[in-house]
């Protein structure tokens, strides 16, 4: 009775088992400990949260596992916070000395941190992600990625933001194409134009419908990223897609809104779980992907600086 053999013709789905009450407990304990330690507990709090979300996500009968530890993330946290304090000190110094002209290079410096942080975060996060013992991994090259990042940011600035769509697609493409699930790999194939069309359409329809269309707009943007993704295994491509609909997202948002309203914000954990479940359980991987054939290829990578930096700078990790 080999229960993990899955060579069915059904598409594969993810399942999310988290519960609002449990999350609430974790969040409360995290908040208390972070408060009493004047913030030093923050990395452990994050590790705990990630461990919970990962372990409640199921694919083909097996849960994900986040192997990262508070200690690893603390080391990253210290480095990240040192860097941020240094930057703040320099900015405050510049303000005090009224040398405002020097703020520009500082902003550029802050911008320059982002690709390093994204690179480090992906490397750390994926290396610490395990499913059935198989480590995920990120194979992006820092120099290549930084070059791509600055080139795209430069073009976006020069085109007064118009190139922004191409920038997000290019960055997403580079990072996704370097993700490995053992010996399988993620592939993202789309062009800035595709996103641009969705953006323009969404923008105008949202104005015309006095904002109502925003739910469908967000859905289209999300679908764009998911539906252009495939997983390559042994030379075969398996499409990743999402069943998310604008209507579903609208319903989710409205109910979330009322939960927050009537619980005076305490229900935020339930809202978070509902939202994550919505996103995760709508994802499908095309039939044929062999969940038994992933082979271990990745090593360990334990430097969490990038991950901590991103979380402190409020940059979401795709």
């Amino acid at each position: 009775m080999d229960s993990t053999t899955t060579t069915t013709q059904e598409p594969l789905r993810l399942k999310f088992h988290a519960e609002g009450g449990t999350l609430f407990g974790i969040v409360i304990v995290n908040a208390l400990l972070t408060m009493f330690t004047l913030g030093l507990y923050y990395p452990w709090a994050r590790a705990k949260l990630l461990k919970y979300f990962y372990s409640e996500t199921e694919f083909a009968g097996s849960r994900f596992e986040f192997l990262g530890t508070g200690r690893e993330m603390f080391m990253g946290f210290i480095k990240a916070i040192g860097l941020l304090i240094l930057i703040y000190a320099v900015v405050i110094g510049i303000m005090a000395a009224h040398l405002y002209i020097l703020l520009l290079p500082i902003y550029l410096l802050i911008l320059a941190i982002i690709p390093f942080a994204i690179h480090g975060a992906l490397k750390y996060r994926l290396s610490r992600t395990v499913w059935r013992g198989i480590h995920f991994g990120y194979h992006g090259d820092l120099k290549e990625f930084a070059t791509l990042f600055f080139k795209n940011v430069g073009l976006t600035v020069v085109t007064l933001g118009f190139y922004g769509m191409w920038m997000s697609v290019n960055i997403h493409k580079y990072t996704q194409n370097n993700i490995r699930l053992g010996n399988a790999q993620v592939k993202f194939d789309a062009e800035g134009w595709d996103l641009f069309v969705i953006y323009i359409k969404g923008y105008f329809l949202t104005i015309i419908t006095l904002g109502i269309y925003a739910f469908w707009w967000i859905t289209d943007m999300h679908k764009f990223y998911i539906n252009h993704t495939t997983i390559v295994q042994d030379g075969n491509e398996y499409a990743v897609s999402t069943n998310m609909t604008g209507g579903g997202f609208f319903k989710l948002s409205i109910i979330n809104f009322f939960i927050i309203l009537f619980t005076l914000g305490i229900g935020i954990s339930w809202v978070r779980v509902r939202t994550m479940r919505f996103y995760i359980e709508n994802i499908e991987i095309a039939a044929g992907f062999d969940t038994n054939a992933l082979v271990q290829t990745e090593g360990d990578y334990k430097d969490a600086t990038g991950d901590d930096l991103l979380s402190m700078m409020d940059v979401p990790l795709a």
Partner: peptide, 16 residues
């Protein structure tokens, strides 16, 4: 007891 064993080399599970 019955469970699934993963050897850490591949994602194949063995009924154990």
């Amino acid at each position: 007891y019955n469970g699934n064993y993963f050897d850490g080399k591949t994602s194949r599970g063995y009924a154990a």
